[in-house]
Write a protein that binds this DNA or RNA. Structure first.
Length: 296
RNA sequence: GGAGGGGUAGCGAAGAGGCUAAACGCGGCAGACUGUAAAUCUGCUCCCAUCGGGUUCGGCGGUUCGAAACCGUCCCCCUCCA
């Protein structure tokens, strides 16, 4: 075993999945998913989840372990992954964490400590009659320390801060593992956007609408169905916009998502970046493999 | 040839004498993020700049203390009648 773990990050549609399989082959690894929407059963096409035949006998963890109506949180995720990592290492294999959910990735690679109360899922209803400004004022008055660090125009954040103790202040983050490599896949923005648009078209052709329809018909609501590709089709089924508009929005939201992902990876994680060669992906694989071997 | 409607920032689209470098949306860029994260939220987006300055609303010329807005004229687009 050369290192504690390999982490692969990057915006949607850069080729993380492909890379993960190749690295798993080279380094005798098992893959742990870090894509929050791929946890859910039944969300396959829209989340670009790896297909059985693409796995090439590589073991995959934390895929399809939630029912689409279930709620989930980073805290549980962190716990599960920490266990998985140990389990894989005990087998003398290399844990490879792949995904695009920034917070989830960070909660693993860094020594995130979650404190305070568990989130109260009905809190929102409790404060329905209060404006965000009023809630912010409340926070300011009762929990000045938290308020100072909180984005007061972000209702969701204010609500969460309201259920914490004022003493629950964050500490400086440190890496959790001594020998982790974080590989980032990147490409020119325009190209990325083209790939995203293209991939959405492919999803449509592969039957995304039908996939979402079956969720919709089962009256599934909640976290899972907030995923891009799903929430837009829900609106479509409600008759709120045309098919064309739906597809356009899925593309737009995916592009915006990719941007947000890049912001997180660049500013919150210590990533070693590699420019992807789409015409000759094996070059990229080789380059990254060499790099990992060299540093570990 | 006749009758109307219109030309506003990258695009779409408001504005009908000063509060307008010009709402809003899209597109683009940047950012935040510790229990919903593919979520949620923030800022910038004519040019140069730190304050601040310089050029704008099809062209030109007027009216006015002051115009994207009013008048004249010219160019272009759309609809209708010939």
């Amino acid at each position: 075993m050369m290192c504690d773990l390999i982490m692969i990050v990057g915006p949607t549609a850069v080729g993380k999945t492909n890379l993960s399989i190749e690295l798993a082959k080279v380094f005798d690894g098992e893959i742990i998913n870090a894509d929050a929407m791929q946890f859910y059963k039944g969300l396959n096409i829209g989340t670009a989840k790896i297909k059985e035949d693409q796995k090439q006998d590589i073991v995959h963890h934390l895929l399809d372990f939630l029912n689409p109506e279930e709620a989930f949180s980073v805290v549980e995720y962190q716990k599960l992954v920490r266990e998985k990592v140990e389990e894989i290492k005990r087998k003398k294999k290399c844990p490879i964490i792949v995904g695009g959910s920034g917070l989830y990735l960070s909660s693993i690679i860094d020594d995130y400590k979650f404190f305070g109360k568990e989130r109260d899922s009905v809190l929102n209803e409790k404060y329905l009659d209060f404006s965000t400004e009023e809630l912010a004022k409340m926070l300011l008055d009762t929990k000045p320390l938290l308020a100072k660090k909180c984005d007061l125009s972000n209702r969701r954040r204010v609500l969460r801060a309201l259920e914490k103790n004022d003493s629950d202040v964050q500490k400086e983050l440190k890496p959790f593992y001594d020998n982790a490599v974080i590989i980032g896949l990147e490409t020119e923005r325009n190209l990325l956007y083209k790939r995203i648009d293209c991939r959405v078209d492919e999803m449509i052709n592969s039957g995304l609408e039908k996939e979402v329809k079956s969720l919709y018909d089962r009256n599934i609501v909640g976290q899972s169905v907030q995923a891009i590709g799903y929430k837009e089709f829900y609106e479509y089924f409600e008759g709120n916009y045309s098919k064309e508009k739906t597809i356009e929005l899925i593309k737009r939201n995916s592009r915006r998502y990719a941007k947000r992902q890049m912001t997180w990876f660049k500013n919150k994680m210590n990533v070693t970046w590699f420019n992807v060669n789409f015409d000759n992906f094996s070059n990229t694989i080789e380059e990254i493999t060499k790099y990992i071997k060299k540093i570990s």
